Simulated assay, not measured.
Amino acid sequence: MHDEHPTDQSEPTPEQPDTAASRDETAPDPGGSPPPEAVSGSSSSDADADGGTAGDDLAEVRRQRDDHYQRLLRTTAEFDNYRKRTDRERRDLAEYAATDLLTDLLPVVDDLERALAADTTDAEVYRRGVEIIRKQLLDLLERRGVAPIEALGADFDPNLHQAVTQEASDTHRDGEVIEELRRGYTMRGRLLRASMVKVAQA
């Protein structure tokens, strides 16, 4: 006889909840997107920061513009004052030079008046007086840097001479100045007045 053993029928164990899966469903994903409210707050902060930076940049640009404009106004005013000052100094210098020249001319005028007041009919006396006055004038011009142009016998130079007429000649070079009709002068090497001359034409 076989012994009958009761069949071992164990009761099924109730399923335990998967705690790991539950944790995964509830825990935030470190690598995922932040919650919508967090994104919204961050965007608002960034917008405020960008707006503040743009406003600061605009204010700085305006400040630099105003600074450059003020500098331009000051420079313009300084240049205008400099121009007025140099013009005034130039006028003063010209007036001083004219005064100095006139002062040197007064002794010549004095000699002319004495010559006219002289009680004489001697032509030679008058001639000597005129020569003295002429020498005074030439000395005055020389002190001022004025020198006569030696034109007679020189070749015609359009930079120094003004040809009034030409004359055919077999005894002079072509273009030679054969007569000085009015003396010319230079002042410190620059032409003051051209000589009026007659030029030979061979």
Rank of each mutant, 00 (worst) to 15 (best):
G51L: 06
D87L: 07
L181C: 04
Y126D: 13
R127I: 03
S40Y: 10
L58D: 10
S33W: 09
D100L: 11
G189R: 00
H68W: 13
Y82N: 14
K135T: 08
L102M: 13
H172I: 00
A168E: 13
L58E: 10
R65Q: 15
T121E: 15
A163P: 07
T103Q: 13
G175I: 02
L72H: 08
L93W: 12
S22F: 15
D92R: 12
D174R: 03
A147F: 05
D157R: 01
A27W: 09
G189E: 00
G32Q: 03
D8L: 12
P17Q: 11
Y185S: 02
D111Q: 12
A98K: 10
A154Q: 04
D18A: 05
Q16I: 12
G41C: 07
A54N: 06
T75C: 09
A20C: 11
R173E: 06
E60D: 12
L73K: 08
P12A: 15
D100S: 11
A97D: 10
H68A: 15
S42T: 14
P36I: 02
D46L: 12
S169Y: 04
V197T: 03
E4Q: 13
L105Y: 04
I133S: 01
D18H: 05
Y185H: 00
P6L: 15
S22A: 15
D29K: 03
G51H: 05
T171A: 08
Y82C: 11
I133D: 00
L93A: 14
R90N: 11
R74G: 05
V125P: 09
D29H: 04
Q136S: 04
D29C: 01
D87V: 06
